[in-house]
Each structure stands twice: as structure tokens, then as C-alpha cells.
């Protein structure tokens, strides 16, 4: 392929990737933007002012969404660490079955699980609560965390731990000084993507939260469904902010070295 052809293809790809985000940026500043105007006749910051006012509930929703995603990630990391270690370091009978159970929630469509999940959490008195939503988010998040950590541990050599132990370290010291530094990069990437998976959930939150747990996507859809494109766009841009931030933290030239990033990603 010649360089100019390559550049052309790259330009087309770039345009395709960025285009759907552009109308959002313009709409968030538009005050009335009707066909056939290519740009709004009038620019206004009303939508942003409303979105950022305490009255709109957007900031509170931002807080709740952050809280849920953070808690889900932390729990998933705590639960996923030992499981990932077991899967990554040991061959044992039934291992294939465990992997399958971990893959299932990641592959089965959310709609297949959501009704039953709601039924369970309702009986547990957790439907409509933040705690219930966190538990529900664990279903898609925990498998990712565990499988990524399993991949990380499969490249980890446990003899270093044993050496530390023979040198007199307690199990906790051995973990903190030997294991954790070795798995940290993988753990962090897994955590960041777990955060994003929880951050993006719509249906699970709607079903289990019952509208009472107003995460950003629910709020966003509410305004979209009411036809307030200006407010919708402003909230949408706020909503992709953490993703951008996470990207800034992890971005590097795609080299494939950051395979944890890729194995933690989901469609």
C-alpha cells in the first residue's frame, strides 16, 4: 500500500471515529438548532449551566455513578485477586468449568440475566438501592477482573514469593513487597476497565435500581427521551469525561505490549 493511500485510509478512519461525537459538542452549546441550519443560529451556555447546577441532579448522579463504579471495582478486585491467582497459577480438575462460568456472564446478553437478577435482589431487599446496583454490576465486572488477573498471574513466578518467605517475610509482607509490585500494572488496567464497564451499564441499573438509583446513563436517557437535545448533549459529554481521564492515564501508542488493556476491554 502506498503512503498516500495509507494516509487516506487513516483519514477516513479518523473521521469515522470522531464524527458521531461532533454533533454532541455543538448541541451542548446550541439554543435551538433546527434543520437546515448547519450550525446553531445562537450559541448559549444554558444547557451547561443547567447540567452543572445542583438542581438538575447531574452532579449528584455523577457522584452516585462514580461511587457505584468504584465500589464495584474494589469488590471485584478483592474477590477476583485470589480467584485469578488460582486460575493463573494452578492446573486443577474443574478449571475449565470455572473458566466457563466466568465467561458466561461476559458473553450472555444482559437481558437474559436481568429479570432473574432483579428477582433475587428484590427478595433480598436490595432492589432500588445503591448496594443492590453494585451487586448487579459485579455480574459483568467480576469475570473481566478475574480473567485479566488470571492472565497476569500466569506470567508470574511464585518462587519469588517463596524466596521472600524463606527469608522470613510474613505472607502479607511477601504479598506486598513481591507479588503486588509484579501484578500492579495488570491490576490497575483491569481496575480501570472494570470501572468503565460498571460506568456504562444501563439496563442492569434500570432494572435493579428501579429508577431510584439515578446513574448518569439513566438521567441521560431521560433527557434524550424528552427531546432536550441541548441538555442531553451536555450530560453526554460529562458522561464520557472519566473515560477520557482514564485514557489519559493509560494511553500509549498501541504496541500490543499492554495486552492487559486489551484483555480487559469489552465491546
Amino acid at each position: 500500500m502506498s503512503t498516500s493511500l495509507r494516509t487516506l485510509a487513516a483519514l477516513a478512519l479518523m473521521a469515522f471515529l470522531i464524527l458521531p461525537l461532533l454533533p454532541l459538542a455543538v448541541w451542548s452549546l446550541a439554543q435551538g438548532w433546527r434543520f437546515p441550519d448547519i450550525l446553531p443560529a445562537e450559541l448559549s451556555t444554558t444547557a451547561w449551566a443547567y447540567a452543572l447546577s445542583p438542581q438538575s441532579g447531574v452532579l449528584e448522579s455523577f457522584g452516585i455513578t462514580t461511587l457505584i463504579a468504584t465500589a464495584t471495582t474494589l469488590i471485584a478486585a478483592l474477590v477476583g485477586l485470589p480467584a485469578g491467582r488460582a486460575l493463573g497459577l494452578y492446573r486443577f480438575r474443574g478449571r475449565g468449568l470455572v473458566v466457563l462460568l466466568l465467561l458466561a456472564p461476559a458473553i450472555l446478553p444482559g437481558i437474559a440475566v436481568v429479570f432473574g437478577l432483579h428477582g433475587i435482589l428484590l427478595r433480598a431487599g436490595l432492589a432500588g438501592t445503591v448496594a443492590g446496583v453494585i451487586l448487579a454490576h459485579l455480574v459483568p465486572v467480576l469475570p473481566y477482573m478475574t480473567l485479566v488477573l488470571a492472565a497476569v498471574f500466569s506470567r508470574f513466578d511464585p518462587t519469588y514469593e517463596q524466596q521472600a518467605r524463606t527469608l522470613g517475610a510474613t505472607p502479607w509482607q511477601a504479598f506486598r513487597t513481591v507479588t503486588l509490585p509484579a501484578i500492579l500494572p495488570g491490576l490497575l488496567t483491569a481496575a480501570l476497565f472494570s470501572f468503565l464497564v460498571s460506568w456504562s451499564q444501563y439496563l442492569l441499573t434500570l432494572a435493579v435500581g428501579g429508577g431510584r438509583v439515578q446513574t448518569l446513563p439513566l438521567l441521560l436517557y431521560g433527557f434524550a427521551a424528552a427531546g432536550r437535545n441541548d441538555l442531553t448533549a451536555a450530560i453526554a459529554l460529562l458522561y464520557i469525561l472519566p473515560g477520557l481521564l482514564i485514557l489519559a492515564l493509560t494511553a500509549r501508542q498501541i504496541t500490543g505490549r499492554n495486552t492487559a488493556l486489551v484483555s480487559g476491554a469489552r465491546p
Binding site: P20, S200, P217, L220, A233, I240, G243, L247
Partner: peptide
């Protein structure tokens, strides 16, 4: 990193 719902609206 962009949630589906945002992409759909865009």
C-alpha cells in the same frame, strides 16, 4: 471508553 448510549445519541 465511550458508552454505547452516548454513541447512539451522537
Amino acid at each position: 471508553t465511550v458508552p454505547h448510549i452516548v454513541g447512539a445519541i451522537g
